[in-house]
């Protein structure tokens, strides 16, 4: 039987959130003063980010990723392995690897589908045994090797994740009713709704309430 297991990353498999990697990049800038300045800039943008988060996850990602503006593509990609090894993997929830392995043992295709930048999602997925072809994150725009801070459309968040899952299922002949999906965030409700076996992982209060009303299983990996 051809089926897949779709995983969100931040908060689902790892303790980190989508801003953690950005923080790592900012503090590793060669000029510490510039690093401090960029961090302060982000702090000043907190109200805007909060507003964007309240609007929808896509807007939030767009606002947050604007902070990558000016980074060279080389630097982002070279440091990605470091971010994965020093930040994401140590932040893995204790049961996360077990869950991924259990899905792999059932012959499912493992798919990472995250709002994080794709240059992070791919190496992270590879470390956990995911095929690089099935690691999806948001793609940032680069002009002359420099990040513009814009996300190339479509922004991978909320309903777009669900749409991508449908497309993948069509391409690979997966029956979504046989597929599994794991996420921690209520913004991923569409992603959880399109599969036959959704699970709320370490859910916040909003997703927990949603899981309760939809009778989705709740997994605590932490």
């Amino acid at each position: 039987m051809s089926r897949a297991a779709f995983f969100d990353v931040d908060g689902t498999l790892t303790r980190t959130n989508i801003a953690s990697a950005l923080g790592y990049y900012l503090q590793s800038l060669q000029n510490p003063l510039l690093g401090a300045f960029r961090v302060a800039q982000q702090v000043a943008r907190l109200p805007l980010l909060t507003w964007a988060e309240a609007m929808d996850r896509g807007s939030f990602n767009e606002q947050l990723f604007a902070a990558y503006q000016g980074f060279s593509e080389d630097r982002l990609r070279v440091l990605a392995d470091e971010v994965v090894d020093r930040l994401l993997l140590p932040g893995l929830f204790p049961g996360a690897r077990q869950l991924v392995d259990a899905c792999a043992a059932q012959g499912m295709t493992l798919v990472l589908i995250s709002g994080s930048p794709d240059f992070l999602v791919k190496p992270f997925g590879q470390r956990l045994g995911f095929d690089e072809r099935f690691c999806f994150g948001n793609r940032l725009e680069f002009v002359r090797n420099t990040c513009t801070g814009r996300i190339l459309p479509p922004v991978l968040a909320g309903p777009r994740k669900a749409a991508m899952m449908r497309e993948l299922a069509d391409q690979h002949g997966w029956r979504l009713t046989d597929c599994y999906a794991y996420s921690d965030d209520s913004a991923d409700a569409p992603m959880l709704s399109v599969v036959g076996h959704p699970a709320a992982v370490n859910p916040g209060p909003r997703l927990r309430r949603m899981a309760q009303s939809q009778r989705w299983p709740v997994i605590e990996l932490s």
Binding site: A102, C103, V218, E220
Partner: peptide, 11 residues
């Protein structure tokens, strides 16, 4: 089912 397995083992 990996979900139920995980809920049994960890929950």
């Amino acid at each position: 089912n990996p979900i139920y397995k995980q809920m049994y083992r960890r929950g």
